[in-house]
Amino acid sequence: MRAGWSYVGRRALFALITILVAISLNFVLFRLAPGDRTSALRCQACTAEFKEQMRADFGLDKSIPEQYVLYMRQTLTGDLGSSFVTQQPVTGDLWKAIRNTVPMILLGTVISIALGLITGVVAAWRRGTLVDRGSVWTGLLFYSLPTQWLALMLILYVATPLGLPTSDIGDPYLAYSNPGWWPELVDRLRHMILPAATIGLVLFGEYTLIVRSSMLEALGEDYIMTARAKGLSNWQIVTRHALRNSLLPIVTLIFLSLGFIFGGTVLIETVFNYPGIGLEIYQSVYDRDYPVLQAGFLLLTVSVVVMNFLADLLYFKLDPRVTE
């Protein structure tokens, strides 16, 4: 068990160091970019004196090491600065964006897992048949499609026939009819469907391949033969025995991909104008809004590192061999 805790400690330390390096890289990268916080104040006609005062207010008149210490202190205490564009604290804007993105990502992940499980299990069960090849190739095809193209196709060919919204997180005018929480919830879910479906369709192939290969491995085990000999139905063999024993790689894949999906939402949220973290980052690149970009990149890094760490912990919990 001691070896196990040492494993967790090492992974935690590694995660912490990665985050600290990412924070420091953020400091360097955005100071190498042209312009500084004062150049984005739309103050072309301002006097040099006023600009200098603003620089002093932002701490830009200090030496680089002093700025680094100040930056680290602010970042570690949760102060990520103010947006160049809105002049409002970045933390509030990002928090709002995250709250919008997380449910959409989770729904997308649920869709991808469900599709991946169905196609993966069917492919493994009907190995070598047309169904197997069809499932795998369909998964790979969607996995290879450009995300933004697939999103546009959903807008052009799915949104109107199904009456699904193509923008925003909810009907902005719904509040005027005081509908209550249930219609509001339904409305939110309707707005989530197309962006989440895009995530689901793009990612399910990953799960198809993993489920298929681990199912094939499980289906070749002796206990499956025993189950057959006992006269269990196919359904029982798959759900009770084969699938349960194939889940380990899928669970870790879920956590690993959750971290990366945060970054991948930039394209999806931009096409669907979904006001989450991806759209926030896209807009900030356009506006050269360095504080928001800095905080956005930090968040993406932290999400990948934390999800990887959680995957490690789960592996530790689920697979005793790790601690041996």
Partner: peptide, 25 residues
């Protein structure tokens, strides 16, 4: 796996409800 899916769905719904709460009627 069913529990994970249920958990994820529950979080989606809970988050959506929480997000709904932000809008004043």
């Amino acid at each position: 796996m069913k529990r994970i899916l249920t958990l994820l769905l529950a979080i989606v719904v809970a988050s959506a409800i929480a997000a709904c709460g932000g809008g004043e009627s």
